[in-house]
């Protein structure tokens, strides 16, 4: 999952970035609206956490802009994080197109829970992702296969979680690079292949992640 954090306060941005990275989210930080727009021109984010009071404009205008055929890539989900706590302001934020609204100060655990909730697939009843005998719990950052724990690094976990969010769908290496790595990733690198092979090894046999020649990777024992 790739997260765009738009927050002008450097201390809050630093600590949120650290927390999101620890929770296996590839996180890019923008301190201004202009910086955010630059990132949104080229990257399709899974989630954007947007502070409203930005030095060069109102974050709410940016949220509204997504709904008006803008040249910016609309993040899949939008969570507003702000100090504005009045009911009218919450209503305005949600009506502008945000999926959720969180008032500062908040518990970081709650922000993570909300990010998980807005990303839940339509067919998901809980946040736990299941494909065949693999079970991924994004809240506990745990993975089991056939009931046995599988120990993964943060990046491997992020890759598996993204694959399991779209079971049966063929995901290209570029798409995986865009959604699992942050903006510091080298697009020419073999990172996806290297992490994928480590992940496959750790998940063991029978192989559940399949290579689709010339197209990418697909998780699941059946064609989706």
């Amino acid at each position: 999952m790739r997260v765009l954090l738009i927050e002008d306060d450097p201390d809050l941005a630093d600590v949120l970035e650290l927390g999101l990275q620890n929770a296996a989210y590839a996180t890019d930080v923008a301190r201004t609206r202009a910086e955010a727009e630059e990132l949104l021109m080229t990257t399709a984010y899974d989630v954007a956490c947007i502070d409203l009071g930005l030095p060069d404009g109102d974050g709410l205008d940016l949220v509204r802009e997504f709904g008006h055929g803008t040249f910016l890539e609309r993040p899949n989900r939008i969570v507003i994080i702000t100090a504005r706590d009045a009911v009218a302001q919450r209503v305005a934020g949600l009506d502008a197109g945000a999926d959720d609204y969180l008032v500062k100060p908040f518990a970081f655990e709650e922000l993570l829970a909300r990010v998980r909730a807005v990303n839940r697939r339509n067919d998901q009843v809980t946040n736990v992702l299941t494909v065949d005998d693999i079970r991924v719990d994004p809240a506990a950052l745990s993975v089991t296969r056939a009931g046995s724990d599988v120990s993964l690094t943060t990046r491997e976990f992020a890759l598996l979680r993204y694959l399991m969010t779209y079971p049966g769908r063929v995901l290209s290496a570029e798409e995986l690079l865009e959604h699992v790595w942050d903006r510091n990733a080298d697009p020419m690198s073999t990172s996806v292949r290297v992490i994928m092979s480590r992940l496959r090894r750790k998940l063991g046999e029978p192989q559940i992640i399949h290579t689709v020649a010339g197209a990418g990777y697909r998780i699941g024992s059946h064609d989706g």
Binding site: V15, L16, G19, N22, D85, K104, P105, F106, E109
Partner: peptide, 21 residues
Amino acid sequence: HELRTPLAVLSTNSEVLLAHP
């Protein structure tokens, strides 16, 4: 309003450090 952001930093800071892997 002015205290919300530093409070958010304080609460997130302790949570993130305690949960740091």
